[in-house]
């Protein structure tokens, strides 16, 4: 059997390989299901751009991100990291996705969403001795307000487009989902301006290792983000992946790598330019 990063391949030909072939089909189907659910349609956002990308360390992974457009023009964004790796983590990632989709529909803000999610899946996670870290945020393009809540996840980085500075979002406390029952997750808000970018990520990025065992760390991530802050979200994603690959130079990826980007554009300026006559 060998693995080419996308598919498991098993030796063929002998009857005793039937079980293995069946297993191969099922693993590949599981991967297809996860890929389809994870990399669904990225919504178009008024006044900004969003994008997400996830690279599992194994065939499938336990990282999760999602976008949920809300009726009032806002968008709810979530990123998460399920304990462990591979198929067990992927199964719990699907559980988490279901909880998010259901909670996003019925809750008013990101804090309430995390509270509802913990309420919904706490018992299952404790039974399975697992947990998931999650960061959830609402972006309101009309007011420029970015409201967020945290359940044990790394705080995203905010790159200020006009001042060439990068900062971690102000801390908001909250423990992992699956840690304790009946948790209330609090919210904080910041104001985003034209050309600001928020970079959500999982620890697979900053813990990527090179041949010497050094970690990529947040310092390198910040340098990369500052260097490409004027690019669009897909190009920023590519730049981050390229610098990680350059840093690790062939050392196999140990953990799932996931990032989500939100970049703000002055929507009024965009609308004006779209309406301008073409000469």
């Amino acid at each position: 059997m060998y693995f080419d990063n996308f598919t498991f391949h098993f030796d063929q030909g002998t009857p005793e390989n039937e079980l293995e072939k069946s297993l191969q089909r099922e693993i590949n189907l599981a991967r297809n299901i996860q890929t389809a659910l994870l990399n669904g349609k990225t919504p178009k956002v008024e006044g900004g751009q969003v994008s997400g990308n996830s690279l599992p360390a194994r065939l499938i992974g336990g990282d999760y991100y999602d976008f949920y457009p809300l009726v009032n023009g806002k968008i709810r964004i979530v990123i998460g990291d399920v304990m462990g790796k591979g198929i067990p983590a992927a199964m719990l990632m699907i559980l988490t996705r279901g909880a998010f989709r259901s909670a996003a529909e019925s809750t008013q803000g990101p804090g309430e969403t995390l509270t509802a999610m913990n309420q919904a899946i706490y018992e299952d996670l404790r039974t399975l001795k697992s947990f998931v870290t999650l960061f959830c945020a609402d972006w309101d393009p009309k007011s420029g307000t970015f409201t967020y809540s945290n359940a044990g996840h790394h705080l995203p980085l905010c790159i200020r487009g006009k001042s060439n500075t990068i900062e971690e979002l102000p801390k908001v406390k909250g423990i992992m989902v699956g840690g304790l029952p009946n948790q209330i997750y609090h919210e904080k808000s910041i104001q985003l301006e034209d050309l600001d970018m928020v970079f959500f990520y999982t620890d697979g990025i900053i813990e990527a290792q090179n041949k010497e065992g050094e970690l990529y760390q947040i310092t390198r991530l910040k340098e990369t983000l500052l260097q490409c802050k004027e690019k669009d979200v897909k190009e920023v994603e590519k730049a981050v992946i390229d610098t990680i690959n350059h840093f690790t130079s062939g050392v196999p990826q140990k953990d799932d790598i996931t990032m989500v980007l939100l970049k703000v554009f002055d929507s009024k300026a965009d609308i004006t330019s779209f309406n301008s006559p073409i000469y």
């Binding site: 870290t133 406390k173 909250g174 423990i175 992992m176 840690g179 304790l180």
Partner: peptide, 8 residues
């Protein structure tokens, strides 16, 4: 601290 282990 981030994941909330001390708090738990």
């Amino acid at each position: 601290e981030t994941v909330g282990l001390y708090h738990i």
